[in-house]
Computed example of a mutant assay.
Amino acid sequence: MEIHQLKTFVAVAREGSITNASDQLCLSQPAVSAHIKAMEETLGIPLFDRTPRGMSLTAEGQRLLTKAEQTLDAHRELLEEATRIKGRLTGKLRLGAGGSTRSDELGHLLTVLSERYPEVDVELQHGTSLEILNGIRNGHLDAGFYNEAGTPGSELATIEITQFGIYLAAPPGLVSTSNPLDWQALADLPWIGPTTHSCCGQAAETLFKQHQIRPKRIISIDRESVTRTLIAGGVGIGLLHAETAQEAEQCGEIEIISEAQQTVQVLFAYLAGRAENPLLSAASSILREQLFE
Protein backbone atom coordinates (compact mmCIF):
# COMPACT_ATOMS: atom_id res chain seq x y z
CA MET A 1 0.00 0.00 0.00
CA GLU A 2 1.34 3.42 -0.98
CA ILE A 3 1.38 6.64 1.06
CA HIS A 4 -0.48 8.46 -1.71
CA GLN A 5 -3.32 5.94 -1.41
CA LEU A 6 -3.60 6.66 2.32
CA LYS A 7 -3.70 10.39 1.57
CA THR A 8 -6.52 9.80 -0.89
CA PHE A 9 -8.45 7.64 1.60
CA VAL A 10 -8.23 10.33 4.31
CA ALA A 11 -9.18 13.11 1.88
CA VAL A 12 -12.28 11.25 0.65
CA ALA A 13 -13.28 10.44 4.22
CA ARG A 14 -13.00 14.08 5.25
CA GLU A 15 -14.61 15.59 2.17
CA GLY A 16 -17.32 12.98 1.78
CA SER A 17 -17.07 12.91 -2.01
CA ILE A 18 -14.75 11.91 -4.85
CA THR A 19 -15.19 15.30 -6.50
CA ASN A 20 -14.12 17.39 -3.52
CA ALA A 21 -11.24 15.04 -2.71
CA SER A 22 -9.94 15.20 -6.29
CA ASP A 23 -9.95 19.02 -6.12
CA GLN A 24 -8.06 19.01 -2.83
CA LEU A 25 -5.48 16.49 -4.02
CA CYS A 26 -5.16 17.95 -7.53
CA LEU A 27 -5.96 14.53 -8.98
CA SER A 28 -8.53 13.44 -11.52
CA GLN A 29 -11.69 11.80 -10.22
CA PRO A 30 -10.82 8.47 -11.92
CA ALA A 31 -7.43 8.53 -10.17
CA VAL A 32 -9.05 9.08 -6.77
CA SER A 33 -11.52 6.27 -7.43
CA ALA A 34 -8.66 3.98 -8.49
CA HIS A 35 -6.76 4.66 -5.25
CA ILE A 36 -9.79 3.76 -3.13
CA LYS A 37 -10.49 0.63 -5.15
CA ALA A 38 -6.84 -0.49 -4.85
CA MET A 39 -6.91 -0.05 -1.08
CA GLU A 40 -10.14 -2.01 -0.72
CA GLU A 41 -8.76 -4.84 -2.83
CA THR A 42 -5.50 -4.89 -0.85
CA LEU A 43 -7.23 -4.84 2.53
CA GLY A 44 -10.09 -7.10 1.49
CA ILE A 45 -12.74 -4.93 3.12
CA PRO A 46 -15.04 -2.13 1.90
CA LEU A 47 -14.04 1.33 3.09
CA PHE A 48 -16.93 3.39 1.78
CA ASP A 49 -20.61 3.11 1.00
CA ARG A 50 -21.41 4.85 -2.30
CA THR A 51 -24.62 6.84 -1.88
CA PRO A 52 -26.37 9.54 -3.97
CA ARG A 53 -25.13 12.08 -1.42
CA GLY A 54 -21.48 10.98 -1.76
CA MET A 55 -19.03 8.67 -0.01
CA SER A 56 -19.84 7.44 3.51
CA LEU A 57 -17.35 5.47 5.59
CA THR A 58 -18.24 1.92 6.49
CA ALA A 59 -17.73 0.74 10.05
CA GLU A 60 -14.50 -0.88 8.94
CA GLY A 61 -13.43 2.28 7.14
CA GLN A 62 -14.16 4.36 10.24
CA ARG A 63 -11.88 2.15 12.35
CA LEU A 64 -9.08 2.37 9.79
CA LEU A 65 -9.35 6.15 9.36
CA THR A 66 -7.66 6.83 12.71
CA LYS A 67 -4.81 4.46 11.87
CA ALA A 68 -4.43 6.04 8.45
CA GLU A 69 -4.22 9.52 9.98
CA GLN A 70 -1.63 8.35 12.51
CA THR A 71 0.40 6.75 9.72
CA LEU A 72 0.37 9.99 7.71
CA ASP A 73 1.40 11.98 10.80
CA ALA A 74 4.30 9.57 11.38
CA HIS A 75 5.32 9.85 7.73
CA ARG A 76 5.31 13.65 7.93
CA GLU A 77 7.34 13.60 11.14
CA LEU A 78 9.87 11.27 9.52
CA LEU A 79 10.33 13.67 6.59
CA GLU A 80 10.61 16.66 8.92
CA GLU A 81 13.24 14.88 11.02
CA ALA A 82 15.19 13.97 7.87
CA THR A 83 15.13 17.64 6.88
CA ARG A 84 16.46 18.65 10.29
CA ILE A 85 19.19 16.02 10.10
CA LYS A 86 20.32 17.29 6.71
CA GLY A 87 20.75 20.72 8.23
CA ARG A 88 22.61 19.44 11.30
CA LEU A 89 26.09 17.98 11.43
CA THR A 90 27.14 15.35 13.93
CA GLY A 91 30.24 13.22 14.37
CA LYS A 92 33.94 13.66 15.16
CA LEU A 93 36.40 15.79 13.20
CA ARG A 94 40.04 14.82 13.82
CA LEU A 95 42.27 17.81 13.12
CA GLY A 96 46.04 18.04 13.10
CA ALA A 97 47.96 21.24 13.83
CA GLY A 98 51.63 21.77 13.09
CA GLY A 99 53.89 23.59 15.50
CA SER A 100 53.72 26.84 13.50
CA THR A 101 49.95 26.81 12.93
CA ARG A 102 48.71 30.31 13.70
CA SER A 103 46.40 30.36 16.68
CA ASP A 104 43.99 32.88 15.12
CA GLU A 105 43.04 30.67 12.14
CA LEU A 106 42.81 27.55 14.28
CA GLY A 107 40.92 29.36 17.02
CA HIS A 108 38.46 30.87 14.54
CA LEU A 109 37.79 27.48 12.96
CA LEU A 110 37.18 25.78 16.31
CA THR A 111 34.99 28.63 17.58
CA VAL A 112 32.75 28.78 14.51
CA LEU A 113 32.46 24.99 14.32
CA SER A 114 31.30 24.97 17.94
CA GLU A 115 28.75 27.73 17.33
CA ARG A 116 27.29 26.38 14.10
CA TYR A 117 27.55 22.66 14.73
CA PRO A 118 27.40 22.04 18.50
CA GLU A 119 26.96 18.29 17.97
CA VAL A 120 30.33 17.96 16.18
CA ASP A 121 33.19 16.79 18.40
CA VAL A 122 36.65 18.05 17.45
CA GLU A 123 39.75 16.06 18.37
CA LEU A 124 42.90 18.20 18.01
CA GLN A 125 46.31 16.59 17.62
CA HIS A 126 49.59 18.54 17.50
CA GLY A 127 52.62 17.34 15.57
CA THR A 128 55.18 18.13 12.91
CA SER A 129 54.14 18.80 9.35
CA LEU A 130 55.28 15.29 8.39
CA GLU A 131 53.21 13.76 11.19
CA ILE A 132 50.16 15.75 10.11
CA LEU A 133 50.55 14.64 6.49
CA ASN A 134 51.07 11.01 7.43
CA GLY A 135 48.01 11.15 9.68
CA ILE A 136 45.86 12.48 6.83
CA ARG A 137 47.16 9.90 4.38
CA ASN A 138 46.76 6.90 6.67
CA GLY A 139 43.33 7.93 7.91
CA HIS A 140 44.28 8.75 11.50
CA LEU A 141 43.41 12.42 10.83
CA ASP A 142 40.58 13.89 8.78
CA ALA A 143 42.40 17.12 7.99
CA GLY A 144 45.18 19.31 9.29
CA PHE A 145 47.32 22.44 9.04
CA TYR A 146 50.89 21.93 7.86
CA ASN A 147 53.78 23.81 6.24
CA GLU A 148 54.55 23.07 2.59
CA ALA A 149 57.91 24.17 1.21
CA GLY A 150 57.32 22.54 -2.17
CA THR A 151 54.28 21.32 -4.07
CA PRO A 152 51.41 19.57 -2.25
CA GLY A 153 50.77 15.94 -3.19
CA SER A 154 48.17 15.39 -5.90
CA GLU A 155 46.11 13.26 -3.51
CA LEU A 156 45.45 16.29 -1.30
CA ALA A 157 42.86 19.04 -1.45
CA THR A 158 44.35 22.17 0.09
CA ILE A 159 43.47 25.70 1.14
CA GLU A 160 46.30 28.19 1.50
CA ILE A 161 46.00 29.89 4.89
CA THR A 162 49.08 32.11 4.70
CA GLN A 163 52.71 32.24 3.55
CA PHE A 164 55.99 33.01 5.26
CA GLY A 165 59.70 33.15 4.48
CA ILE A 166 62.65 31.56 6.25
CA TYR A 167 65.83 33.37 7.27
CA LEU A 168 69.24 32.21 8.38
CA ALA A 169 70.06 33.90 11.67
CA ALA A 170 73.15 34.24 13.83
CA PRO A 171 74.02 35.69 17.23
CA PRO A 172 74.87 39.42 16.95
CA GLY A 173 78.45 39.96 15.84
CA LEU A 174 79.27 36.26 15.32
CA VAL A 175 79.18 36.25 11.52
CA SER A 176 80.58 38.81 9.15
CA THR A 177 77.74 40.19 7.06
CA SER A 178 80.04 40.86 4.12
CA ASN A 179 78.59 40.12 0.72
CA PRO A 180 78.94 37.39 -0.37
CA LEU A 181 78.81 35.31 2.79
CA ASP A 182 81.66 32.92 3.49
CA TRP A 183 79.64 29.68 3.44
CA GLN A 184 82.64 27.49 4.19
CA ALA A 185 83.17 29.48 7.36
CA LEU A 186 79.50 29.08 8.21
CA ALA A 187 79.89 25.30 7.83
CA ASP A 188 82.42 25.35 10.67
CA LEU A 189 79.79 26.76 13.05
CA PRO A 190 77.13 24.69 14.83
CA TRP A 191 73.77 24.78 13.00
CA ILE A 192 70.57 24.67 15.01
CA GLY A 193 67.36 23.45 13.46
CA PRO A 194 64.76 20.73 13.05
CA THR A 195 65.00 17.55 11.00
CA THR A 196 64.90 17.51 7.22
CA HIS A 197 61.20 16.60 7.35
CA SER A 198 60.28 20.14 8.46
CA CYS A 199 60.13 23.24 6.26
CA CYS A 200 63.20 24.74 7.97
CA GLY A 201 65.02 21.43 7.69
CA GLN A 202 64.26 21.27 3.96
CA ALA A 203 65.38 24.89 3.52
CA ALA A 204 68.65 24.06 5.29
CA GLU A 205 69.28 21.08 3.02
CA THR A 206 68.67 23.33 0.01
CA LEU A 207 71.28 25.76 1.30
CA PHE A 208 73.77 22.94 1.88
CA LYS A 209 73.38 21.70 -1.69
CA GLN A 210 73.36 25.18 -3.20
CA HIS A 211 76.62 26.20 -1.50
CA GLN A 212 78.16 22.72 -1.42
CA ILE A 213 78.67 22.60 2.32
CA ARG A 214 77.86 20.24 5.16
CA PRO A 215 78.02 21.66 8.69
CA LYS A 216 80.38 19.85 11.03
CA ARG A 217 77.77 19.91 13.76
CA ILE A 218 73.97 20.05 13.56
CA ILE A 219 71.87 20.42 16.69
CA SER A 220 68.38 19.06 16.04
CA ILE A 221 65.62 21.06 17.74
CA ASP A 222 61.92 20.64 16.90
CA ARG A 223 60.67 23.87 18.54
CA GLU A 224 61.33 27.24 16.94
CA SER A 225 61.21 29.03 20.29
CA VAL A 226 64.11 26.87 21.51
CA THR A 227 66.04 27.49 18.29
CA ARG A 228 65.61 31.24 18.78
CA THR A 229 66.83 31.02 22.37
CA LEU A 230 69.93 29.00 21.42
CA ILE A 231 70.86 31.34 18.57
CA ALA A 232 70.42 34.38 20.82
CA GLY A 233 72.57 32.62 23.43
CA GLY A 234 75.47 32.25 21.00
CA VAL A 235 75.26 28.49 20.60
CA GLY A 236 75.25 28.62 16.80
CA ILE A 237 73.38 29.74 13.70
CA GLY A 238 70.00 28.50 12.55
CA LEU A 239 66.84 28.97 10.55
CA LEU A 240 63.82 30.90 11.77
CA HIS A 241 60.48 31.79 10.23
CA ALA A 242 60.42 35.36 8.95
CA GLU A 243 58.10 36.76 11.63
CA THR A 244 60.13 35.22 14.44
CA ALA A 245 63.46 36.26 12.92
CA GLN A 246 62.36 39.86 12.37
CA GLU A 247 60.98 40.16 15.89
CA ALA A 248 64.17 38.68 17.40
CA GLU A 249 66.33 41.03 15.32
CA GLN A 250 64.33 44.06 16.45
CA CYS A 251 64.88 42.95 20.04
CA GLY A 252 68.64 42.75 19.37
CA GLU A 253 68.73 38.99 20.03
CA ILE A 254 69.95 37.85 16.59
CA GLU A 255 71.10 39.09 13.20
CA ILE A 256 69.51 37.96 9.94
CA ILE A 257 72.37 37.03 7.64
CA SER A 258 70.60 35.48 4.65
CA GLU A 259 67.22 34.58 3.20
CA ALA A 260 66.94 30.80 3.15
CA GLN A 261 63.57 30.40 1.44
CA GLN A 262 61.25 33.08 0.14
CA THR A 263 57.92 31.27 0.36
CA VAL A 264 56.54 28.47 2.53
CA GLN A 265 52.80 27.85 2.41
CA VAL A 266 50.70 27.11 5.46
CA LEU A 267 47.99 24.80 4.13
CA PHE A 268 44.80 23.26 5.42
CA ALA A 269 44.70 19.84 3.78
CA TYR A 270 42.61 16.69 3.51
CA LEU A 271 42.35 13.84 1.03
CA ALA A 272 40.80 15.03 -2.23
CA GLY A 273 38.72 11.87 -2.39
CA ARG A 274 36.90 12.97 0.77
CA ALA A 275 35.92 16.42 -0.52
CA GLU A 276 32.20 15.59 -0.23
CA ASN A 277 32.48 14.68 3.45
CA PRO A 278 30.06 17.04 5.28
CA LEU A 279 32.43 17.75 8.18
CA LEU A 280 35.35 18.57 5.88
CA SER A 281 33.09 20.66 3.67
CA ALA A 282 31.90 22.65 6.70
CA ALA A 283 35.45 23.23 7.98
CA SER A 284 36.65 24.30 4.52
CA SER A 285 33.76 26.74 4.14
CA ILE A 286 34.52 28.36 7.50
CA LEU A 287 38.18 28.85 6.60
CA ARG A 288 37.35 30.30 3.18
CA GLU A 289 34.88 32.70 4.78
CA GLN A 290 37.61 33.96 7.09
CA LEU A 291 40.18 34.31 4.30
CA PHE A 292 37.85 36.38 2.11
CA GLU A 293 36.45 38.61 4.85
Rank of each mutant, 00 (worst) to 15 (best):
M1S: 15
V10L: 06
R14M: 00
G16Y: 13
S17P: 12
A21M: 12
S28M: 10
A31S: 15
I36Y: 15
K37R: 15
M39D: 14
E40D: 13
L47G: 06
R50Q: 10
R50E: 12
G54D: 00
T58Y: 03
A59R: 07
A59E: 13
A68M: 14
A68K: 12
D73C: 01
R84V: 03
G87F: 01
G87K: 14
L89W: 13
G98C: 10
T101D: 09
D104Q: 05
E105N: 05
L106D: 07
G107F: 10
L109K: 07
E115L: 03
E115N: 06
V120W: 03
V120Y: 10
D121M: 10
E131K: 02
I132K: 06
L133Y: 10
L133F: 08
N134L: 14
N134H: 15
G135S: 11
R137K: 04
H140D: 04
L141H: 03
E148F: 11
T151S: 10
S154L: 11
L156Q: 07
E160Q: 09
I161H: 04
I161N: 08
I166N: 15
L168C: 00
A169R: 02
P171L: 08
G173A: 06
G173E: 03
S178V: 05
D182E: 08
L186T: 08
A187W: 04
D188F: 07
G193T: 12
T195A: 02
G201T: 10
T206F: 01
K209P: 00
Q210P: 01
H211C: 02
R214W: 08
P215Q: 11
K216I: 06
K216S: 03
R217Y: 06
I221Y: 02
E224W: 06
E224N: 09
T227N: 06
I237G: 08
L239W: 15
E243S: 08
T244F: 07
E247Y: 14
A248F: 00
A248S: 07
A248D: 05
E253P: 02
E255N: 11
E255W: 13
Q262G: 10
Q262L: 06
T263E: 09
Q265H: 06
V266L: 15
A269K: 08
Y270M: 07
L271H: 09
A272S: 14
R274W: 03
E276G: 02
S281G: 00
I286E: 00
Q290Y: 14
L291E: 05
E293C: 03
